[in-house]
Design a protein around this nucleic acid. Structure first.
Length: 369
DNA sequence: TAGGCCATCTGGTCCT
DNA sequence: AGGACCAGATGGCCTA
């Protein structure tokens, strides 16, 4: 059995049976956004149907179908000729496969209907996929209704987010904000990096330059990151947008973005309960703690085109640190100061350490009951 | 104008 | 036969 990306995403975010208690726990209400997308889709469908009724829709469909069908009809004639000629010309190899039947007007019509139905199904499928992606956008850090992350960036950020949460659970300690942002931004484009940094109330330029200058900090005995230059300039988001923080240009603070303190210091974010939020805090879930180490694998130049990957995990080279308290995150960063002695597990009733695997199961049980 | 992103159509493949 | 999934092609929109 395999799960395609479509199935995974759709099941993950559309089938409420999978996550009812998690949603209950976190107060997720995904319907608002999906309503928007549904309305949009319905509007498009109405206009499309209207065009169709007017005979203006599916022009390309009809023409292409007509062309292919015409071609098919020509093929049919060829087949018929071949059939006649095969007996005469034995040198020519016989065509394999089922013989093409002549396209009668009825078959032509059925073919058109079938093609249109297939197109409609494909549209629906893609809409479902996009809807699932929209839901994913809402639960990853830095959700903005006006400045949506692209599909690929959404997936990358989600992957990093899961990774960061799993590291938090595994270590049972809060990371410093800079390391946390670094984890989230791994492999993201510069605009998205700026967006994430802005979401976390971190001046992205300072974040980047500071990291470049202080990169040595992350190359200690247990280095977590190495950071090189960011050659990318913010292209899609203006620099003012990127650096003015989460309130810029309609960007609304994502609960997780604004609640770094709330989550990791035990404080409460005043915005967290704001009705303005379209998204809700996603519960940290670590399925088994065994996240793939394939992040070290070379990325496909095709899929990763145009981006300069400037961060990588040095500590992910195959083996995990055996000590339960080995930090995958670097020392204290810009905001946390020297507060390691005050490190509080993000979830007071769950202490997850590397050598206590059942904690993950307990956590899963907690979220699924 | 180029490049990125996206929606849609389309034909192929696999499965039921 | 029909549906689901996938990838390629194409054209539109937006931004630098």
């Amino acid at each position: 059995m395999y799960f395609s990306a479509t199935v995974m995403l759709t099941r993950l975010f559309n089938e409420t049976s999978l996550l009812p208690d998690m949603q209950k726990f976190a107060g997720w209400v995904d319907d608002s956004g999906s309503e928007d997308s549904k309305n949009k889709v319905e509007e498009q469908e109405r206009s499309r149907l209207g065009d169709e009724e007017l005979g203006e829709g599916y022009v390309k469909d009809d023409s292409s179908l007509a062309q292919s069908d015409i071609a098919g009809e020509e093929d049919d004639e060829d087949v018929d000729e071949d059939d006649c000629g095969d007996e005469e010309d034995e040198d020519r190899p016989k065509k394999r496969g089922p013989k093409k039947r002549k396209m009668t007007p009825a078959r032509l019509e059925r073919s058109k209907v079938r093609r249109n139905k297939a197109n409609a199904r494909e549209r629906t499928r893609m809409h479902d996929l996009n809807s699932a992606l929209d839901n994913l956008r809402k639960v990853v850090p830095c959700y903005s209704k006006t400045q949506k992350l692209s599909k690929i960036e959404t997936l990358r950020l989600a992957k990093n987010y899961i990774w960061a949460l799993s590291e938090i659970l595994r270590n049972g300690k809060r990371p410093d904000v800079v390391s946390y942002v670094q984890t989230l931004c791994k492999g993201l484009s510069q605009p998205t990096t700026n967006l994430v940094a802005g979401c976390l109330q971190l001046n992205s330029r300072n974040f980047l330059t500071e990291q470049c200058q202080e990169g040595a900090r992350f190359h200690g005995p247990n280095p977590s990151f190495s950071l090189h230059a960011y050659p990318y300039q913010c292209s899609r988001l203006s620099s003012t947008q990127c650096q003015s923080g989460s309130n810029a240009h309609g960007l609304r603070n994502h609960p997780f973005c604004t609640t770094y303190d709330a989550v990791f210091t035990g404080g409460a974010s005043p915005e967290y309960n704001s009705p303005d939020y379209e998204a809700h805090h996603s519960p940290p879930v670590c399925v088994n703690g065994n996240f793939s180490l394939r992040q070290q694998e070379p990325l496909s130049p095709d899929t990763e085109r145009g981006y300069h990957y400037s961060m990588h995990y040095n500590s992910l080279h195959g083996s995990r640190p055996s000590a339960p308290h080995t930090l995958a995150y670097g020392p204290s960063g810009a905001r946390s100061g020297s507060t390691h002695s005050e490190n509080v597990p993000p979830f007071h009733d769950v202490h997850v350490h590397h050598d206590r695997v059942p904690a993950y199961e307990e956590l899963n049980t907690f979220f699924h009951n």
